[in-house]
Design a protein around this nucleic acid. Structure first.
Length: 259
DNA sequence: ATGGTCGTTGGACGA
């Protein structure tokens, strides 16, 4: 079982990239973020042409998440909202697929430390942690993935000094991330690759990708029951090299669920 | 140098 996460930065602008990458990589499940499209306009035809079906939770212009699965996999029990957190922004989509509870998140960016959006980000993360404590009790095999908009530690940052206390790297954001780890969730890429920066996002500006000035903010967290089956996790930079790319690269996690 | 580049829009705003 291979599960991917990819912030596509508009599923319509990235329609051809998405189709090409699905056809080449053929993961079993793909969690998308920043689809930026209402559900009625989601490109289900492009997804189907690659052999996938999609469950979506979108909105106009901003945010939006979707979970794709290969056509032979059932997408069951979708939930589109964080329980107890009334929020019109479409950032959360949980679904059961292949015996796993897959929770796809587009964590708020936070804009700048101290801003209203930053406060919303921390509140959103606190509600996520509260919810996951209960979800983990119901679903021992749980996978939490998406664009976390947090670089968990300095080793996830190309220039830690330049990013010190900036949004995506500030101590309160990292504390919110550690609260997720305290629930028993493990950052799979970091567990398997202690010394690889594993950048997954590069700013469009100043040729950041060419200079590899990136951050690792697209993550796959797994419960203990799932960690035992984790075999690989890699960042696929290939689509980031294509013309008119998303600013994020896909991350692919592999599991041996029979082992 | 307080910039820069995208996507969605149809002028800024968000990232």
């Amino acid at each position: 079982m291979r599960i991917a996460t990819w912030n596509v930065n508009s599923v319509r602008a990235r329609r051809d990239h998405m189709h090409a990458w699905l056809a080449a990589e053929q993961p079993d499940v793909v969690c998308l973020q920043e689809t930026k499209v209402v559900d009625a306009d989601f490109p289900h035809d492009a997804v189907a042409a690659a052999g996938y079906r999609a469950v979506v939770s979108g909105q106009k212009s901003y945010n939006g998440v979707a979970v794709l699965a290969r056509g032979d996999l059932d997408l069951a029990d979708p939930v589109t909202d964080l329980p107890g957190f009334d929020d019109p922004q479409r950032r959360y989509l949980a679904v059961t697929v292949g015996g796993l509870r897959v929770v796809n998140v587009y964590v708020p960016n936070g804009s700048a430390v101290g801003s209203d959006k930053y406060a919303y980000k921390l509140a959103w993360l606190a509600h996520l942690a509260d919810h996951l404590a209960a979800a983990l009790a119901d679903h021992p095999r749980l996978l939490l993935t998406g664009d976390f908009n947090i670089a968990p530690a300095d080793r996830d940052v190309h220039d830690p000094e330049a990013w010190r206390d900036q949004v995506l790297c500030s101590a309160p954001e990292r504390a919110a991330f550690h609260a997720l780890e305290a629930l028993g969730l493990v950052d799979l890429f970091r567990a398997l690759h202690p010394d690889d920066p594993g950048f997954s996002w590069w700013d469009y500006r100043l040729q950041a990708f060419r200079r590899d000035r990136g951050l690792r903010i697209d993550l796959v967290l797994v419960s203990a029951a799932l960690l035992a089956h984790g075999r690989a996790c890699r960042i696929d930079r290939t689509p980031r090299t294509w013309d008119k790319p998303s600013d994020h690269a896909p991350v692919v996690a592999s599991f041996d669920l029979d082992g």
